[in-house]
Amino acid sequence: MIPVRMAMATCILRVAAAVAASTATAGAQAGLPPAPAAAGAEAPPSQPMIGLTTQVPTIGVDSALEARVKSVSATLRCPVCQGLSLQDSPSELAQQMRGVVREQMAQGKSDDEVRQYFIAKYGDWILLKPKAEGFSTLVYLLPALFVVGGAAVVWVMAKRWSVPVATAQGLDEPAPTPQPVSATAP
């Protein structure tokens, strides 16, 4: 359970390694980073961001475009994560890729064209849900076959087993007396 989740998070956090470099040099002795109260006044205003991401977010919420960005991002895999989608991953690259999704949509590309762009760059691997074509059809087909086949087996079993006990042959059980459980209300 632990390790892959770990990997997942390490990926999420990939970015801020710069932190160690930049703040280590800037504030190694002072302890990292300087407390805002102490440093706030004289520090230059436009310091680089430190943390999970250095991106300035552009997430709006209500527009139809954002809804499309969300729905497409949810189907694309974050390259540096363990199976998280672009939508879910807080990693910097995922955020930047969401930005690409947004930009391309703003330019008028359709959802499929955006997906196609990422497939061209990262391969089919980028799709969290494989395309239902070619070999990958199996991953959709087999569970459906399992349910249908299983239902057929259940049907056959139910038929075979519901042979009235008295007429069934080769039974080593005496016919059980009907239980009051199935009777009507007392």
């Binding site: 801020a16 390694a17 109260a37 520090a43 205003p45 430190i50």
Partner: peptide, 29 residues
């Protein structure tokens, strides 16, 4: 090298408010 986030969650029966610190400037601006 990377920081580990510790989200802060306000839990109520109707739902959670989940805050995550994504980034900050060292000067606190």
């Amino acid at each position: 090298e990377q920081p580990v986030p510790t989200p802060s969650v306000r839990s109520r029966p109707v739902g959670d408010l989940y805050l995550n610190l994504m980034a900050f400037t060292p000067d606190g601006a």
